[in-house]
Design a protein around this nucleic acid. Structure first.
Length: 271
DNA sequence: CGTATTTGACCTCG
DNA sequence: CGAGGTCAAATACG
């Protein structure tokens, strides 16, 4: 699978090269370039993800079973130690946490577990990307209601999405988790209604794209610029949803794969 | 009837 | 051993 990804990326880059060398741009070549660049990036991301997590479930790389125990954990700089003849299971997944009043984030998640957490009032829900088996996307998230403010969720994202972005698509299955994690179902119901209302509100075609953008991505692009270089891929950062009455996206933290820790607070206000 | 959720058992790691 | 994470059979959903 990893080889396939790399070959795809190589092919895209091969097709890209003449397009960039040719000074004469025929129409449509720009979007073609964009498409190819996207493919190249996607292939790299996917391949890297596979590389760093391939023995996570023991079934990748030809299904050779790799024992999880009795292996060196990890060397300095967090990189896996590769013993001769051994593939070392390593989960060096990027992780970031947000606190928000919604759990929606435009990706399709599937719940696979829930646990009571010691000293925590509320259970923690475990979600994986619905495309785990279609596209091998290993992204995961954990959702837990905060003690202090029960209608806020602390959401921890683990691993980047390697599946095709589901931005601006299907929203029917993505927020069911709310109903379950909810103490106050009415509140979530209201939020959900607002969510749909806003989504359907664009008046005319001219404003449609911008309306969507404003709604789905109320965090301004520039807010992320400072940490741009530390992130694996801006596409994979959580896109937040916020209703216009609330400015409650409170806290972001990010942990890169090279033990680069960033922790900062933002008071992002959504118009 | 296919897909998502629920939930207790199971697994892993400290 | 126990806390947290995952699996999977049963069940609910649409």
């Amino acid at each position: 699978m990893m080889i396939r990804e790399l070959i795809q990326g190589q092919e895209a880059a091969t097709q890209l090269k003449p397009l960039l060398q040719n000074p004469i741009r025929v129409d449509g070549s720009l979007s073609r370039v964009d498409e190819l660049v996207t493919n190249v990036l996607r292939s790299f991301t996917q391949a890297l993800s596979l590389l760093s997590s391939f023995s996570y479930d023991g079934e990748t790389l030809g299904g050779d079973e790799v024992a999880h125990r009795d292996l060196p954990s990890s060397g300095e700089n967090g990189l896996p130690v590769v013993a001769p003849g051994n593939y070392v299971p390593r989960k060096t997944a990027q992780t970031w946490t947000t606190v928000s009043h919604t759990t929606d984030d435009t990706h399709a998640w599937r719940k696979y577990g829930q646990k009571g957490i010691l000293n925590s009032k509320f259970p923690r829900g475990y979600f994986r990307c619905t495309k785990k088996y279609d596209e091998g996307c290993m992204a995961t998230k954990q959702v837990q209601r905060t003690q202090e403010n029960p209608d806020m969720f602390e959401i921890t994202y683990i691993g980047i999405h390697t599946c095709k972005a589901t931005l601006l698509t299907d929203t029917t299955n993505t927020n069911r988790e709310e109903s379950y994690l909810a103490n106050n179902k009415e509140t979530n119901h209201l939020i959900k209604q607002e969510y749909y209302l806003k989504e359907e509100s664009p008046s005319d075609d001219a404003n449609k794209v911008e309306d969507h953008h404003k709604f789905y991505d109320p965090i301004q692009w520039s807010d992320w610029e400072d940490i741009e270089q530390s992130k694996p891929n801006i596409i994979n950062m959580p896109l937040k949803l916020a209703s216009s009455d609330n400015a409650d996206i409170v806290h972001y933290s990010y942990t890169g794969s090279q033990s680069l820790d960033i922790d900062f607070f933002g008071g992002f206000r959504s118009f």
